[in-house]
Design a protein around this nucleic acid. Structure first.
Length: 488
RNA sequence: GAGAAUAUAGCUCAGUCGGUAGAGCAACUGCCUUUUAAGCAGUGGGUCGAAGGUUCGAGUCCUUCUAUUCUCACCA
């Protein structure tokens, strides 16, 4: 670094601006390769970061990397002149340069740019970790890859420079979000924005982050979900609304959980959860085709097919199938002993719905690799979902499980304000008993429902997890640019 | 919250039984006008995560701490 500071000063003293304002780029690296013709010398002007250098006295080769990839540059002293060539000798891997020249093919066959002039565009003061590559039997072998996970997350910018597959993952993430947005918009649903700072948090069972508004001198929460606000908009007369929402949950961090994560929530009036399952099937299938070009993905060592229809299974049937026990019609006592027979240690405080969830989470969910809709959850686990039209004690709810993890959650929304009040008050009681994840009674939300909300289907998709599955990434940190880490 | 593993040069890693720090790449100086893990010759580079302790002597043994990774717990 010391040396590079000196070089920077050196360049400035010799009249070279190490940080000029613009450079006229006419082609990306990929364009040069794509438009190359053996018989023609096409003039090009490319720019990018120097990634390799091979200096040979009075001529040099180097690769620059731009947004589309790498292109080799050939630089000859005769061609660019003495002064420019000695400037070039002061450049390092990591510097950003612009090159004007023409495309040609080298003796060893690589399409390259024969430089006629070049310009330093930005001097790099820190050495980047250079990984070298070699082709062995057609396989690319990478030497000394920048692989320390902590450093890669802390200095994602370096990770992106050096590890091209990281860049690809995030490009795909963007494509997934763009596709979902276009899919929803094309159906006539409205993209909206609702508060992130909320005086009362709700819509999920989770602990929030708390903050303080100085001028109002009041406590505010970072949202854990946007569900209750979107439903207010359905009350307000929008037929379909969705929001890509950063949500915040003050909980543990592991490879499936980041304290801030992205969900898209969608609410559509006059529809139910059965209809929503079809939407999810279509969405996942078409997203996979659009982004990956095929309807299967490889995730955690399994091939997952996203071709509809997905399997549908009630939670009771799934437990019957994977545990061989029947939970239908069982009371809390019986469920508890069933769980015990299966070898589950249970907190004596939890109720029957939670016991079922525990059994499911322990024995069923991890084994659901192919996309599967799990339906008809116990009412007490789902205070915002509508009672099942024919199965007492259950609600019209589904989760989509794939790769052993929940990807989506959806229900026919509860729109009876009286029952909704009862459910929230029951939550409030749980809260008083010490369940700090139980929901809070949101009087304004209840007031909205009292004006009348049409029948409505709601959906939440965990974008991070969906990206993980579609990109075959095993950690949520690999699909979030800047995952949360403790300070250095 | 619990356990395990990891932490040594810019990067990737060695470092034996406790004896005073190593390699490859990167960097620096030469030479080299079609190279591609360029090559050849030479040079420099370290608070061994932090703080204590044991010892004549600690990268190595002990204690505490910090960070990361993995597993478990928690978590719609």
């Amino acid at each position: 670094m010391q040396r590079r500071h000196e070089e920077r000063r050196h360049l400035m003293e010799s009249g070279v601006n190490p940080y000029p304002c613009t450079f006229d780029v006419t082609a990306y690296a990929a364009d040069v390769l794509a438009t190359f013709r053996e018989e023609e010398q096409l003039p090009v002007s490319v720019a990018g970061r120097i990634m390799t250098i091979r200096k040979m006295g009075k001529a040099s080769f180097f690769h620059i990397q731009d947004a589309t990839g790498r292109i080799q540059i050939y630089l000859k002293k005769d061609e660019v002149g003495e002064k420019a060539y000695s400037t070039f000798k002061l450049l390092d891997i990591g510097d950003i340069v612009g090159v004007k020249g023409y495309s040609f093919r080298t003796k060893t066959g690589e399409i390259s740019v024969h430089a006629q002039a070049f310009e330093l565009l930005s001097k790099s003061l820190r050495p980047i970790p250079v990984a070298k590559e070699k082709e062995v039997d057609g396989q690319k072998v990478v030497y000394d890859a920048f692989s320390d996970k902590e450093l890669r997350y802390r200095q994602r910018y370096v990770d992106l420079i050096v590890n091209p597959e990281v860049r690809q993952t995030f490009i795909r993430r963007s494509a997934i979000v763009a596709f979902i947005r276009q899919f929803f918009t094309s159906k006539g649903w409205l993209e909206v924005e609702t508060p992130i700072l909320q005086p009362i948090y709700g819509g999920a069972a989770a602990r929030p982050f708390t903050t303080h508004h100085n001028a109002l001198d009041m406590q505010l929460y970072l949202r854990i979900a946007n569900e209750l606000y979107l439903k207010r908009l359905i009350v307000g007369g929008f037929d379909g609304v969705f929001e890509f929402a950063k949500d915040f949950r003050n909980e543990g961090i592991d490879r499936f959980h980041n304290p801030e994560f992205t969900q898209v929530e969608l609410y559509v009036a006059y529809k139910d959860y059965n209809w929503m399952m079809e939407q999810v099937e279509e969405l996942l299938y078409r997203t996979a085709l659009a982004v990956n070009g095929c309807d299967t993905v490889s995730f955690l060592g399994s091939e997952i097919s996203l071709k509809p229809p997905f399997r549908r299974l009630t939670i009771a049937d799934s437990i019957r199938e994977y545990c061989g026990v029947d939970i239908d019609g069982k009371n809390e006592q019986e469920l508890r002993s069933t769980a015990k027979d299966l070898g589950l240690e249970l907190d004596p405080k939890i109720g029957s719905g939670k016991i079922i969830d525990e059994i499911f989470g322990e024995f069923v969910e991890p084994r659901l690799i192919q996309p599967t809709f799990i339906t008809d959850y116990p009412t007490e686990m789902s205070p915002l979902a509508k009672e099942h039209r024919s199965k007492p004690g259950l609600v019209e709810r589904f989760e989509l499980i794939a790769g052993g993890k929940e990807l989506c959650n959806s229900f026919s929304e509860l729109n009876d304000p009286v029952i909704q009040r009862e459910r929230l008050e029951a939550q409030a009681k749980l809260r008083l008993r010490g369940d700090d994840e139980a929901m809070i009674v949101d009087e304004d939300f209840l007031r909205a429902l009292e004006y009348g909300m049409p029948p409505c289907a709601g959906l939440g998709i965990g974008i991070d997890r969906m990206v993980m599955v579609l990109c075959g990434q095993e950690s949520i940190r690999d699909v979030i640019f800047f995952p949360h880490l403790k300070p250095e």
